[in-house]
Each structure stands twice: as structure tokens, then as C-alpha cells.
Write a protein that binds this DNA or RNA. Structure first.
Lengths: 232, 232
DNA sequence: CCAATAGTGTCTCTCAGACAGTATAAG
DNA sequence: CTTATACTGTCTGAGAGACACTATTGG
């Protein structure tokens, strides 16, 4: 881990978020070596020049090695750089946001990582608090005008589950009719197979989720789509 | 310019955009050394570890040294990295978008840089074409729901100038009334001094721009504000 | 007077959102 | 039957956008 004198070191950090009990939570672990030994920190690592095909590939590899997860959603957040963020000198961290549904977590655990409420964070190593704050801001903002929250759910989900996610993120309720017309969905008009809604947002599956009531159709998300009008 | 075997080199690139004759144009220069000698390229450079306080500071310094400009607007775009983008090996480029009003350009020139229509680009060095494409997409998208286009104008501008900028970016006309009500502006209700509109978007100055017609009030932009509803 | 651009009030028509109604399951 | 949740049609009020009207300068 030699420090060059002429070019900063490059690492990749990941803000891995999930929604648990209605709260956004972030994966953190306690560092077991200097610098910032014993402090809580984000998962992160260095580019493997011989192995990684891109920065995104580095992020996926680091996440898999450290937490055992492939995220449902991954995007670059912002690159942090400066002389003071790491005591070893001028450094650069390419920060990413990743989302994972809570259901996958409970099944597998997350290694040495634990999840902390992003609105009630302990002290973090380096500039990781700043990274979490920006990531949360990005996710909350993007959730208000896009299908981003779909990636906090399993691959298939009901419209009611999706509405609940939105309401948890924004802490405000909407009537079912309003929510559905915003998405441009008319469930009854859908062909059972692969038919999509008009705006190409969701894909209807031919599966239903039962219970002791009328079964709800399951949907998958097509791609990240942006709304013309913000939700909240 | 030695290449380390264990950590990629980090550079900072800037996509400097302006609006000229109704077209978005990007600053490019012809490289005078290998690799990609004689190819057109974006302004860019390396972090000066002893000098730069942040990546943004690096971008500003590089821009000033190479083009002579301090941009009106600067934000990080995305960081590009991989083994193939530079023939010298695994490299990382922190890409930025910068905006400058055309009026400042004509006054000072831009050194060895010339401006090219982003919708009719020649072949570019490295992955610079990809960087320009993403930057333009970001600017066009952000322009549709924010005050970003204000930074393509001088510090003070009339509402008609602002409307013209929006119409040039989107290639579609709107009536004056519609445009003004979108911004939530009622010019007459403004106190001549520093009064702002309701949404805190623009600041009214007490200056007017004459001509052989009714003079138009000059405005300044307060900060980057996002609209709840997209313009186009 | 006219020309030219700045700024505003009005009218219409669409669409968001509340609400109440129907549909389908289990017990 | 009741209960519980899924889904949809209707009605109303707010707001976007077209258009025409007034305001203020120069010639």
C-alpha cells in the first residue's frame, strides 16, 4: 500500500442502502487496522489493475468480497478528493450508491457489516459521513421523480408494496387511485403476459400474490425511468 | 509521467460548454504530443498534490491555465476508469462540466481552444467523445427542470434573454405568459431593490436594459433551484 | 402618430387527487 | 354472510398555456 509522491491513490467506496422497518439504513463495519482503527467505515477497496474492467466492476467485486452481496442497483455517486480526507495524504475515492432489498439481507446476513439508520449515524472514519449524507440526499431526491425505489424491493412486487415504499421514504400517504394514475397504470387492461404500461415503467408478470383477499398482480421494473412531474 | 503498476493514474478533464448561435458548443484543442498526438481533446491535467485543495480546485486551475477562463458554473460529471481508455494502461479521469456565457468568450478568446457544435462532433481522443455526450445529456436534462441555463448568460439578464436560452436548448417556443408563470414571477410586485420571487429562484436588480422600447428589468440568478415540474 | 418590446389579466381545458364504489379472495 | 385487500370510475378544483390587452420607450 505504497503512497506515490506525485499521484494520489485511488480507492472505491460504496454506500450500500436498504429499507428496514421504514428506515433507510447503511452498511458499516469497524475497521481493524490503521488509519482510523476501530472507527466505523463504509465498504471500500482499491482498483485491481489486472482484474477490473471498470470502476463499476471494482465496486461490484469489493461489495461481493466484503459483504457477499450483488446489489440490485448500483450507480456512481461522486468522486471525493483532497489532501485532508485521509491522513496518509492526497487521496481520491470514487463513491458509489448501491441498493438492496431488505428481504435478501435477512436471508443471508452481511458478514461483518451492520446496518445503521442514516438519520441517526454514529461517528464515521475519513469523509464517510459526508459520503453517506450525499448518497441519502441523492436517493431521496431521485426517488421523488423516478422509479428508483423499485430497487429497494425484490424483483417481483405488488403495487401496494411499491406504494408503501414511496410512503416510507417521504413519510406521507397518498390515495391508491392517485398513486396508480401517476404511474399511468391500468392493471385490468394489461395482457397477462409481458404487457407494459404506457410510459414503459413497469412490466406486468402473469403471477399473483395471494392471501385471504383478492390476489394482487406482481410487477417487475423495466428500467430506471424519470417522471415529468415530481411525486412529492 | 511514469505509470505505476499498482495504482491507476488520475487526471481531471473538463467539458467546457457555451451557447453560440443557438448551438451548444464544446471547447477542444489539438494535442501536441503522444498519445493521440494531433487528435482533438478536452482540456485536462493532473492533480498537483502540493497545490490543489480538492478535485474542483484542480479543475479550476487547469481551466484557467489552459483556456484563461474561470467558468460561471462548474460541477463534477462522472469519473471514467478502465484499462482501455488510455493506451498507457488502467487510468482514471474525473470529468467535469463547465458553463460559460458566450459574451465572455468573444471578449477574451480561449487560447488554443476552439468551439465545436456538440451535435456534429469530429473524432476525439481517448473516451472524450463519451464524456462530451454524457455532459450534454446532463446539461439538457438538468436544463429542463432547473435554473441551470441561467449560467449560460451574463450575471445580469432580462427575462426575454432567459426565455430565448431555454427555447434554443429545447428548440420549441413558449408564450411569454406561460414562461413567466412557470418561474412564478410577477415583475410588477417586486421591490426595486433585492426582492426575490416566491420560489427564491431569481433576484431582481434595480437596473433596466433600455432600447427603443419599454425597458426590461435585469435579474440575477440566486442559486441552482430545481422545479417540481419539468419544463419540456 | 407608429413600431417594438415589456409585462399582465382572462378564459379554457386538462389533469391531479379525494372518495366512493365494485371485484375477488378466505373463513 | 363478514372481512380484508385489489382495483377502478367519477367529480371537483387547481393550474398550465393560448391569447389578447395594456405599458413604456424611441422616432
Amino acid at each position: 500500500m505504497k503512497q506515490s509522491y506525485t499521484t494520489p491513490d485511488v480507492s472505491v467506496d460504496i454506500v450500500l442502502l436498504t429499507l428496514d422497518e421504514g428506515l433507510l439504513k447503511v452498511a458499516l463495519h469497524q475497521r481493524d487496522r490503521a488509519p482510523a482503527k476501530h472507527s466505523l467505515a463504509l465498504p471500500g477497496g482499491y482498483v485491481h489493475v489486472g482484474e477490473d474492467a471498470s470502476l463499476e466492476a471494482t465496486a461490484k467485486r469489493v461489495l461481493l468480497e466484503k459483504t457477499g452481496f450483488a446489489p440490485r442497483y448500483l450507480e456512481q455517486l461522486r468522486t471525493f478528493g483532497g489532501p485532508a480526507r485521509d491522513p496518509r495524504g492526497w487521496s481520491v475515492a470514487v463513491s458509489h450508491v448501491a441498493l438492496i432489498p431488505h428481504a435478501e439481507l435477512s436471508a443471508a446476513g452481511a458478514g461483518v457489516f451492520q446496518f445503521y439508520d442514516v438519520d441517526d449515524l454514529p461517528e464515521l472514519a475519513f469523509d464517510h459521513a459526508e459520503q453517506v449524507e450525499e448518497a441519502v440526499q441523492r436517493v431521496r431526491n431521485k426517488a421523488s421523480y423516478s422509479t428508483l425505489p423499485c430497487w429497494l424491493l425484490p424483483e417481483s412486487f405488488t403495487l401496494t408494496q411499491l406504494q408503501t415504499i414511496y410512503e416510507q421514504i417521504f413519510g406521507e400517504a397518498v390515495s391508491r387511485g392517485t398513486f396508480r394514475s401517476r404511474l399511468g397504470i391500468k392493471v385490468a387492461e394489461l395482457q397477462p403476459g409481458d404487457a407494459a404500461d404506457e410510459a414503459d415503467i413497469l412490466i406486468a408478470t402473469d403471477e399473483f400474490q395471494g392471501g385471504n383477499q383478492r390476489p394482487a398482480r406482481l410487477f417487475k421494473v423495466n428500467r430506471l425511468s424519470l417522471f415529468k412531474r415530481a411525486f412529492w
